[in-house]
């Protein structure tokens, strides 16, 4: 089960946040921004402290109640997917979401890169796709 999706731009700003489960507690919008910024910093630190060179940084954070998957694109955008611990095949799911992003966000003439995403078609396509992932 996919719980929520965060998209963080290359500067660490939160550009998209959406929950896919009714039972989740909503945070204030400021808290979401802090959460995204914090993860961005942790990610940057993990690339530095890695004992092997050229580390891509943190990819998975596991907890009792959830798993947090991070997928960083070559352009530095991070997709964070929070799922329940048993969720299979999140790699494919993240790639699928990345594809929706490149279709409905990047090809949308009214979107300014690195700014919060407000695209109706992106919302709709996620709504349609997420339950099947």
């Amino acid at each position: 089960m996919i719980l929520s999706l965060y998209i963080i731009n290359k500067a660490g700003g939160l550009v998209y946040q959406r929950d896919f489960n009714e039972s989740l507690n909503r945070l204030s919008s400021n808290d979401y921004l802090i959460l995204a910024g914090t993860f961005h910093s942790i990610h940057a630190i993990t690339t530095r402290i890695s004992p092997v060179g050229n580390s891509e940084g943190i990819e998975l954070l596991e907890a009792d109640g959830f798993k947090l998957h991070c997928f960083q694109t070559v352009t530095g955008i991070k997709f964070l997917l929070i799922t329940d611990p048993a969720h299979p095949n999140t790699d494919a799911a993240l790639r699928r979401i990345y594809r929706l992003y490149s279709d409905f966000v990047m090809k949308n003439p009214f979107y300014t890169p690195d700014m919060p995403i407000r695209a109706e078609l992106f919302d709709q396509s996620l709504q349609r796709t997420i339950p099947s992932l």
Partner: peptide
């Protein structure tokens, strides 16, 4: 197909 028109331009059709 990939164009989401923002609310302030809702009358616009590409």
């Amino acid at each position: 197909r990939f164009v989401s028109v923002p609310k302030e331009l809702s009358q616009f059709n590409c």
